[in-house]
Design a protein around this nucleic acid. Structure first.
Lengths: 215, 215
DNA sequence: TACATTTCGTACCTATAGTTACGAAACTAA
DNA sequence: TTAGTTTCGTAACTATAGGTACGAAATGTA
């Protein structure tokens, strides 16, 4: 079995970018701030319709600075999606990774999905689903990231479903891959309805209808 | 109650554009051919990413000719969507408007949705759902058309469901508006999965899962 | 102080997409 | 034939977006 080294030896392999004896003009571009700004712009609008210059303005960065940091439009979008993907993956893991009963997890999933976005201070809808719908309008890096996140989502659902099956909590004989696709599709639908302006209450009813047959 | 005039008197009110004593250079632009060409381009690709010039090339029309006919990019898209909407509305009516039992209609709906597109010689996915996902990237005319078609769809489902309810074929106590939204969402999901490359077989399983609880 | 190094950001370049000005072309009517 | 009418399509215009050349600025080092 693979024996991992202690974490801090990694720094000898991949030099950690802390503060290597700083020379030259100090960097002022705040990578994380740019990422957050871009994320919000993409999320709140159509991700393909936000020009780089707008992100620069809102983040208080210059265009060349942004290109130095992310390489290209494609690179920026990939980075943003990376950050976003990590976030939603964690949020989903809080539910699917917990050991609560399958039924309760479904309820929690619905609750999380229809949570009021004004309270959370984030836009309606889901950036990932919005970008999946526009997959072929992006560059290769972003496309690959989209595909990876899609695969990751499905795996997360699959593991959860398999666990429920082995616990005897998954009653029907629906194959795991179908069920995983089903969950992903339902949440995706909900996110799109939310973006269309449908009330979270109504979306909740739709979701409960969708999961009626699974419990 | 409103008494409508005989149809042919309309021609006195709204002059029918048949062959009014033709003067000037004869028109060569084939409106329907341009519409069909544009429809296929939008359907097969991202509707927001097909330049007018490409449609002109493929349809063998000139750009000014196209603008004379449709007024603008927005006008062309509205016209295309109008034609497309009529088509899918009719196809859906063949199923929902028939008097077959609710169960059978659901089966037919699934069959129609997962029908092989190479056989039908049309692209995967659904143009209307693709455009709904990009709603705010379009001009006002197209936006309005999108909204109208969405409303029409929901109404079509609602009438069908209400009829099933009054026939005693709709077993659950799900409200009509929720159920209509549910059908629309499921078909939308299916269309998106198809566009993502998921097999029609798998999509069929997902749809059958979705409608399990409704019969 | 002078030099090496690194980043900064103004001002540009380039490509593309929507849109149109305008003169030529093709027809009817007188 | 000539005048009037309508459409045609080449060749522009304009705006916008992604991307970058390059000199200035800000630091450490000799």
């Amino acid at each position: 079995m693979y024996q991992s080294r202690p974490l801090n030896t990694i720094e000898y392999v991949i030099p950690v970018k802390k503060d290597p004896p700083t020379r030259g003009r100090p960097k002022t571009l705040e990578r994380d701030h740019v990422l957050q700004t871009a994320l919000m712009c993409y999320w709140a609008n159509s991700p393909t319709d936000v020009p780089i210059s707008e992100i620069c303005d809102k983040a208080g960065a210059s265009k060349p600075g942004l290109y130095r940091e992310f390489g290209s439009d494609d690179g920026l979008k990939e980075a943003v999606l990376g950050a976003y993907g990590e976030m939603i993956s964690m949020r989903r893991h809080e539910i699917l990774g917990s050991d609560q009963p399958f039924d309760k997890a479904i309820d929690a999933l619905i609750d999380q999905t229809v949570q009021d976005r004004r309270t959370l201070e984030v836009p309606d809808g889901c950036l990932l689903f919005a970008m999946r719908a526009r997959r072929d309008e992006f560059g290769p890096l972003t496309r690959q990231k989209i595909d990876q996140l899609r695969t990751d989502s499905l795996k997360q659902y699959q593991q959860w479903i398999d666990r429920a099956k082995s616990n005897g909590q998954f009653k029907t004989d629906i194959p795991t891959d179908v069920a995983a696709l089903y969950f992903d599709a339902q949440i995706g639908s909900a996110m799109r309805l939310q973006k269309e302006g449908v009330s979270n209450e109504l979306i909740g009813e739709v979701l409960r209808t969708a999961f009626l047959a699974l419990r």
